[in-house]
Design a protein around this nucleic acid. Structure first.
Lengths: 331, 331
DNA sequence: CCTTTTTCTGTAAACCTTTTCATTAAGCGC
DNA sequence: GCGCTTAATGAAAAGGTTTACAGAAAAAGG
């Protein structure tokens, strides 16, 4: 049996109310009793039971971050932004992984409904837009990194369409007109948006869209390898390849290297995300950098604002991205 | 205001006890009322408040995984093992990061003391052995991946001494006698143990220990690059290099490649961890693989056992590792 | 038809806090 | 020294659940 506030009260010869006041630094308690009660708490090794407190106050000061897969390295910077922003306001951030299972995602969301956390941030949600919209009506919920088309909920992300366009425009600016695209079968919103940016860039530059220059695979680097083999094996192969993620781009470059291609000269490569490895891997990869920390920070700040207000902000915030130019584009 | 068990009871014309029984699938409730109450819960959109339940039952069915840094990619497999083992027994695993701050680690451990979670697993604890030992007396706590010398608490890890020895023995077996070591300034137990294994292997093969062949840096890949530059710049440079992590080994290989070294022939490289990139990066890295998933699974199983028993198991479980041989050692 | 089980349901206490309200004692002004 | 404010404390309710216990009705047994 754990020691409770009652035990402390009895041992200190005061009421539980007074102990509670000491615990919460209420000004009304006399210095004398404050000392005495504090000492007793110390002696008994008392640690307040948060369940009692949380129930009484109907708040936990905890926010749940729900990540999609275990591909954590990518999230860590976002999570750091979230944690620091949350901690600054007295909140803790807990992380849980869905392992790409929508049912498990809903199971985790249940922590929100059951008052085990005060709010939840979905990093790459797997539910339908309508489902999230509905939940967002009664719960403090936010999306980060991945928006959901037509979803009415607080969202913090970047403009993936524009980012994709910028990357491809850069390749076009270097004089390339046959540009390959390696994306994913999985129709995640970010993939879709980046592809859209790819097409927009071509269109605006009067370059015909060629279905044959598109390869769809998985998020694994091996898929980049396969995609690159396919593209470079074409009759009229591309002279530049845009991949919707760095992992894929690195896999693609691996194939090119094995074929003796002069990367950055014969063929240009552009990635997306600016993961740590993109500047460890040689040749260094040109890529789109998105503000991960800033997104994490903002989503928490907005979410906490929502928790305090009764007219929730359901805006979509799009933070600015930037291009990082390295050897793979000959820079 | 949320709908409570009381509202359901009133709407269904039964007592709260009955509603609770429906909620918990008690056999004693008649089929008739079960149906009626269920329907009302559905209609009102009732979601039980876990805080009330947790308080009453004094258990949350949640386990906290405390990770050291944000270098998450490494943990993800362990966490997966933990989550699946936990879920199988009706527990959820929540993750929180200390960002290498011992104070914040203690702050997170407080979730355990305050009954917000039923148990905690530390993946690379930063506290003193005595502190953890003390806490383990009254709380359900476990260490995973990193043991702490002299700490009396449930631990699941691998035998890092033997693993280091095995790796270096393999290099020696290939006829090498000047073997460099790249490790970390940070005296983490795993680094210390792997170094110890390195020394043991030399010793058992009658190779003199040469202080000059040791480079201590950080966990970053750049540190491996620097270390390799130092080692290969020696008057009598090593012909094989053992790094205590893959990240470091990859950084080291990067330097070697830039110098035109024939990796796997002129100089052999051995890493540790078998991270995903170690077989993406070319040349593929030979490394020590530790059973990440299995460690996660086991630590949860043992921890849950401890939570149910009143004589806690404080053993140290060491799971078997294995060598993965690739191009970097000429295989 | 009466007794004894069995089945189902309700009452109320318990879990541990926080907080409102009331109360007592002390301090102050005159 | 009297009335009044202020400071410090306590008693008790509240928050949402689970569960031990008791009770009523129905079924079973004779």
């Amino acid at each position: 049996m754990s020691v409770t506030i009652k035990d402390v009260a009895k041992a200190a010869g005061v009421s539980v109310a007074t102990v509670s006041r000491v615990l919460n630094n209420h000004s009304s308690v006399s210095e004398d009793t404050y000392e005495r009660v504090s000492k007793v708490m110390e002696q008994l090794g008392y640690s307040p039971n948060h369940l009692g407190r949380d129930l009484r106050k109907s708040e936990t000061k905890r926010i749940l971050a729900i990540t999609a897969s275990a591909e954590q390295s990518f999230y860590s910077e976002v999570l750091k932004g979230m944690e620091e922003a949350a901690f600054a306001q007295g909140y803790d951030v807990l992380i849980a992984a869905t392992h790409d299972d929508p049912k498990h995602e809903m199971h985790l969301l249940n922590m929100l409904f059951s008052h085990s956390v005060d709010g939840a941030v979905l990093l790459g949600a797997k539910q339908e837009a309508s489902v999230i919209s509905k939940l967002a009506e009664n719960h403090n919920i936010a999306l980060c990194l991945e928006r959901i088309e037509g979803c009415n909920a607080l969202t913090v992300t970047i403009d993936n369409v524009k980012a994709g366009k910028d990357a491809v425009n850069y390749l076009i600016g270097k004089g390339h007109r046959r540009i390959g695209l390696i994306s994913t079968e999985t129709r995640s919103q970010s993939s879709v948006d980046r592809e859209k940016g790819y097409r927009k860039a071509l269109e605006e530059n009067g370059i015909p869209y060629d279905e044959g220059l598109i390869y769809l695979g998985t998020y694994e680097s091996e898929s980049g390898t396969t995609g690159c083999r396919y593209l470079l094996g074409l009759e009229d192969p591309p002279t530049a390849i845009f991949s919707i993620s760095d992992m894929i781009a690195i896999g693609a470059m691996n194939y090119a290297i094995s074929k003796g291609v002069n990367i950055g000269k014969d063929v240009l490569f552009f990635g997306f995300d600016n993961i740590a490895y993109s500047h460890i891997f040689v040749p260094h990869l040109s890529t789109v950098e998105q503000p991960l920390y800033a997104q994490g920070k903002l989503v928490i700040e907005k979410l906490i604002e929502n928790m305090k207000s009764d007219i929730p902000d359901k805006s979509i915030y799009m933070l600015p991205h930037s291009l990082v130019l390295r050897e793979s584009t000959g820079d």
